[in-house]
């Protein structure tokens, strides 16, 4: 193993690739996180599903009324929206702690750093899959449209996961170095929950739909929510999310190749 001859960029790429190859480790760590959180509780990760379910059951009919929407369609909309949002929200929030939480491992072992990013993504995918049960229940109670477009949910998720890798590395790095950032991100996400069309629709803005359209989080929600409800998302949404993935990955790669070796020292 030669340390200096290899360029920082190829070391960064190697970290990202070999981290992914260490799937036995990150799947184990991800499961372990979930098990640890719910070890002695009877319902385990279903608790999160239940709390999301209660939110859907409570907010769905009420906000449907407030916004003058037909209840059945609106409940399904809120269910799909919340499930998509919770996945995005949790990945962004947890990204802040990827390296901070893995301090012990990072300082003592030579495991690729990206492993801890994949672990966080995996953990949240497990929760997401649990949450899909809510949509199933809604479907049974008030059937919504299921079509070929539903399969696009897989593409939407894949795009989100690609974005999650750079978000995890980027926020993980920034938060390890500047410990105020996790707090900033947490409060921004709280505001974003209301500013992003999650339980309201951009059409409700009338002439001012641009407020929703300029928000990348809206497009991220769209490419998962719409397929879940049997519709495709707009080309704009797919385009924005893909564009963000490319730009974010390039920015992260340049930062990660520069500071990868420094992360252990920041912890």
């Amino acid at each position: 193993m030669t340390t200096q001859v290899i360029s920082p960029l190829s070391k960064a790429l190697n970290d990202i690739a070999s981290g992914f190859g260490g799937h036995k480790i990150w799947t184990m760590l991800g499961w372990q996180d979930i098990k640890q959180r719910y070890r002695r509780s009877a319902l385990g990760p279903w608790w999160l599903t239940i709390s999301t379910g209660v939110m859907v059951a409570g907010m769905g009919p009420l906000y449907g009324r407030l916004f003058g929407q037909p209840t059945a369609g609106y409940v399904a909309f809120v269910a799909a929206s919340l499930i998509a949002w919770q996945l995005i929200n949790a990945i962004i929030n947890d990204s802040c702690q990827v390296f901070i939480a893995a301090e012990g491992h990072i300082k003592q072992t030579r495991l690729p750093l990206s492993i801890y990013v994949y672990r966080v993504i995996w953990r949240n995918m497990i929760i997401f899959i649990h949450n899909l049960a809510i949509l199933l229940i809604v479907y049974i109670l008030m059937p919504f449209e299921v079509s070929v477009s539903t399969l696009l949910a897989v593409a939407g998720l894949l795009l989100l996961l690609i974005n999650s890798v750079w978000i995890g590395l980027m926020l993980g790095m920034l938060c390890a170095r500047f410990r105020d950032i996790p707090q900033i991100i947490a409060s921004l996400l709280q505001i974003a929950f209301f500013l992003t069309p999650i339980f309201w629709k951009p059409e409700m803005l009338g002439r001012h739909q641009w407020i929703a359209q300029i928000n990348p989080l809206f497009h991220l929600v769209e490419i998962i929510r719409n397929p879940l409800l049997g519709k495709s998302a707009s080309l704009l949404s797919w385009g924005v999310v893909s564009g963000v993935a490319v730009i974010g990955s390039i920015a992260t790669l340049s930062l990660f190749s520069r500071f990868r070796a420094r992360i252990a020292y920041w912890l």
Binding site: M1, T3, Q4, K107, T109, R110
Partner: peptide
């Protein structure tokens, strides 16, 4: 053990490593 990368200098290692540090 590979936890910290030196900020300068070179380190060549060959062989499998067992770290019994913690």
């Amino acid at each position: 053990a590979g936890g910290y990368e030196p900020i300068s200098g070179t380190l060549d290692m060959e062989g499998s490593v067992a770290s019994m540090l913690s």
